[in-house]
């Protein structure tokens, strides 16, 4: 082999070695490891439903409502939880409207988490509601106010962090009638802990609470479980069963 040919070979080898050395690093920078949160789960720490039972480190054990809101809420919650007449139940979800974000996440029905490269979906057996969590967006923009808000998320290590604003103020945060307003802001953290799903949410609403507070729940995985169809209006006796009685075609 001539000297020129050997030099060419050496240069080629150096270039090739350099590419091999550099390329994995380049791909590692652009493809961070995404935690696998996918699967179906069921809440393990359901304590009857009131958000206050699932809150963490509450001063005095009570949700920090504004003094102008506290008496109204306590009286309403007492009536809501003790009134025997279902026709008096004013909860939107009893009328098949969406429960609030925290109510939906802590309802005792299975939840499926579905991860794609651009969004995470939480698919709920309760009402078959679906939350869209848009990944890696720069901001919320100006979303239309909705029952479950506008959610954007990103991964931090083993955790999915979700920021939600844009609520319409109509949904109940739990079955007692705890409300959030149109300035409700939640930050959720989803991660796996010893095989279970841990969900932590910080709730902030200057028109309702004196300070942010934290709620947490744990969920057991349900391997090979299919979320069932749930059509709330098909036979809701609280509404006098408004679903049309539709006979099969044949």
């Amino acid at each position: 082999m001539s000297i020129d040919s050997r030099k060419a070979l050496v240069v080629a080898a150096i270039v090739a070695f350099g590419l091999v050395a550099v390329l994995p690093c380049a791909s590692a920078q652009t493809t961070a490891r995404i935690p696998d949160l996918s699967g179906v789960y069921n809440i393990r720490t359901f304590r009857g439903g009131p958000l206050e039972t699932m809150a963490v480190d509450l001063p005095g054990g009570k949700i920090p409502l504004l003094p102008t809101e506290e008496p109204r809420y306590r009286a309403f919650a007492k009536k809501q939880m003790s009134n025997p007449d279902p026709a008096d139940d004013q909860s939107p979800s009893a009328h098949c409207l969406p429960p609030g974000l925290t109510f939906l996440m802590t309802a005792p029905y299975p939840i499926e988490i579905i991860q794609t490269p651009t969004k995470v979906l939480t698919f709920h057996e309760f009402g078959n509601f679906v939350r869209q969590i848009f990944l890696n967006r720069s901001g919320h923009g100006d979303p239309d106010p909705t029952w479950l808000g506008h959610s954007i998320g990103h991964y931090e290590g083993d955790t999915l962090v979700v920021d939600t604003v844009g609520f319409n103020g109509k949904a109940w945060l739990d079955l007692t009638g705890l409300r959030g307003t149109d300035v409700l802001h939640t930050v959720e953290r989803f991660r796996k802990v010893n095989g279970e799903l841990e969900w932590t949410v910080t709730i902030e609403d200057k028109k309702m609470f004196t300070q942010p507070f934290v709620v947490q729940a744990m969920y057991r995985p349900l391997p090979d479980f299919d979320i069932n169809e749930y059509v709330c209006l098909e036979n809701n006796t609280m509404l006098g069963s408004p679903g049309m009685k539709i006979a099969p075609a044949r």
Binding site: G49, M81, P86, S93, A94, L222, M238
Partner: peptide
Amino acid sequence: ITRRPAIAAALAVLWMSALQAHHGLA
């Protein structure tokens, strides 16, 4: 698969809580 004891146990909390799930307790 949902008949497996582990799944049934995991979902056992749903039974009475179905009362409280989407409408009042009382």
